[in-house]
């Protein structure tokens, strides 16, 4: 496999984590424009732990996921009482606040005689764990792929369980769910924490793939894209967001047919899909039909 294919597939994998985190919130009935903030929290936390304190990447990744979950909980606690557009606006505002906090973050420390660490708008260089441990790009793609497969498998198991049914019930009609004894607020907080952890995992992997991060990496474009991928791909299954990422990064971008016009084509695709298939290509009806056909 050449460098280009490895790069495209790694980007598809990395984007899928943040798209899946947006998807989790969507099936719980909440539209977040702010998942890039938790992706950023994961990237900064993981980078600081490995580059400045010499933590092994797997341990740093777990810690960053915990921090991502905590950060999303902190945002969710005051905002989950909002509905629809108001919640979406609140998450966007929170993400912009996080980006400005990244711009103000100066956490410099001497590593081997040189200052390293986040330096505000100058970014954070030298997140070199994978280079220092001889992990080749193809191997890193394998790591991203395995982690994504594990996350997908977990989500698919949850979706087919009672918990999955409860989650979709909360997303579709919270009043009805509450009337049958579901603690709607608690379910939504748990989903928010899981979404934050998932986005943070993507962020850790991104930071170590790139070796460099900066606050602008975590601006609204990333959040809008991840939400759009989940909406285009469909809300019927966890494969939906992956389909969304594949359509944009894997087809529109990689084939370069629409060079220079890709964003226009992508915007048009989002509009058309949302008009004709409001819950995406792989919506609940299609997934049900596929299950009946192949089971």
């Amino acid at each position: 496999m050449d460098d280009y294919a490895i790069g495209v597939l790694t980007n598809i994998g990395l984007f899928s984590f943040v798209a899946l985190s947006a998807y989790l919130l969507l099936i719980a009935g909440e539209m977040s424009f702010g998942q890039q903030a938790f992706f950023g929290v994961g990237a900064y936390a993981g980078g600081i732990l490995t580059a400045l304190y010499g933590w092994p990447l797997p341990v740093a990744a777990f810690a960053a996921m915990g921090l991502g979950a905590l950060a999303q909980l902190l945002v969710a606690l005051p905002t989950l009482r909002l509905r629809g557009l108001y919640f979406a606006m609140a998450t966007l505002a929170a993400a912009e606040m996080a980006r400005i906090l990244f711009e103000l973050l100066h956490w410099r420390r001497k590593v081997d005689g040189e200052l390293a660490g986040p330096d505000g708008t100058q970014g954070f260089r030298g997140i070199r764990w994978i280079f220092e441990h001889g992990i080749e790009p193809l191997h890193y793609l394998g790591i991203v792929g395995v982690l994504l497969a594990l996350v997908l498998a977990l989500l698919l198991v949850v979706e087919r369980s009672k918990l999955g049914a409860t989650l979709r019930g909360v997303g579709e009609d919270p009043e009805l769910a509450a009337s049958v004894g579901v603690d709607v607020q608690r379910v939504k907080l748990a989903v928010a924490a899981a979404a934050g952890a998932l986005a943070a995992l993507g962020g850790v992997l991104y930071a170590h793939h790139n070796t460099y991060i900066e606050p602008r990496n975590f601006d609204i474009m990333l959040g809008v894209h991840s939400l759009a991928y989940a909406l285009i791909g469909g809300l019927g299954t966890a494969f939906g967001p992956l389909l969304g990422v594949l359509l944009d990064i894997g087809v529109l971008e990689s084939t370069r047919i629409f060079q220079g016009y890709r964003m226009i084509v992508f915007g048009g695709l989002v509009a058309v899909v949302l008009i004709y298939r409001p819950r995406g290509v792989l919506d609940e009806r299609i997934v049900q039909w596929l299950r009946q056909r192949f089971s």
């Binding site: 280009y4 990496n217 944009d248």
Partner: peptide
């Protein structure tokens, strides 16, 4: 030599 845009990470796949 590869390239990416800082405000749209991972969204551009310039052939190295």
């Amino acid at each position: 030599v590869a390239a990416d845009m800082p405000t749209m990470p991972m969204a551009h796949n310039v052939r190295p």
